[in-house]
Amino acid sequence: MFKYGVVRLHDLINDILDWERFYLSGRLQKPVHILVDTLNLEDVNSVNLRAAVSASLLLLPTKFSEEDLYAKICSLSYTGDLRMLFAEDRDKVKKIVRGQFDSFHSMYKPFLEEYEAKELLGSSSSSNHHGNILSQISWSKKITKTLLFFITLDCSLSAAHVLVSSLPQTIRSQIAMNLGGGNVHELAISSREEAAKCMQKILKWRVMVSSARQAVSDLLAVGAVNGMRYLARKMRKAWKS
């Protein structure tokens, strides 16, 4: 059994670049296997991946693990998803990240390097061994599983501005509107927390609308009987978790 859909390339690109519905872009923030690529999707999707890292860093605390980062990225497209209320495994995000950790690392390695070069990210460990993030990760894994390794984040207002500037323009426009400024070029945030809260609210609403639309589409596509059977299986998994 496969779940499948058909989408126009124009709509796909719009969602990747602007998070218009945050449905396809959310899928592509997780590891996928591309069979045939006539679009050079990897290059186009790099904008989406950078924005996902930026959004997640706005929501993370000062210190976090590499797994925490990928879990936060993965959870972006589930925030507000109606299915998560009653029809999804509560540990779904953790299972996705732990089952495909190396793939997440390969996907997001260039952006960790980029943000480290901008001095937005650093590293620390329980043994006070310092170095760049990626070599530190490799070093900590070789020594012992009990070693605590953390990525450290610059939580200053200037750093928050850099992260917000990497978000899609439609998201920045809504943030500007919600914070009292009508122009995305005049976006002014008074605190990192304010920007994070506003962004999270916008993403939650987009995911909620998309998930409701998708649920209706699923029922129309597969029929009421098959749809209810599928929903029942999902709900059983949710209750077990």
Rank of each mutant, 00 (worst) to 15 (best):
T144R: 08
P168A: 12
K142M: 09
K145D: 06
L163T: 02
Q169D: 13
L157W: 07
L163K: 04
I175C: 01
L157S: 10
S173R: 02
S140I: 05
R172M: 05
L157G: 03
R172P: 01
L167K: 01
I171F: 08
K145P: 01
Q174S: 04
S158I: 11
A159N: 01
L147E: 12
S138K: 11
A160Q: 04
D154W: 00
V164W: 04
C155P: 01
S156D: 10
W139T: 02
L147Y: 08
R172H: 00
K142Q: 11
T152M: 13
T146R: 09
Q174V: 00
K145W: 08
S165I: 10
S138T: 15
S158W: 04
F150M: 13
Q174C: 05
P168R: 02
R172T: 00
I143C: 12
L153M: 12
A160H: 03
I151C: 03
S138Q: 14
S156R: 08
H161T: 08
L167D: 03
T152I: 14
Q169Y: 08
V164P: 05
V164H: 04
L157D: 10
S140N: 04
S173K: 02
D154C: 02
F149M: 13
S156K: 07
K145Y: 06
H161D: 09
C155V: 10
S140K: 01
S156E: 06
V162A: 15
C155A: 13
R172D: 00
I143N: 08
T152H: 06
D154L: 03
L167W: 03
Q174P: 02
H161I: 07
L153Q: 07
F150G: 00
F149Y: 09
S140G: 05
S138H: 15
L148F: 05
H161R: 15
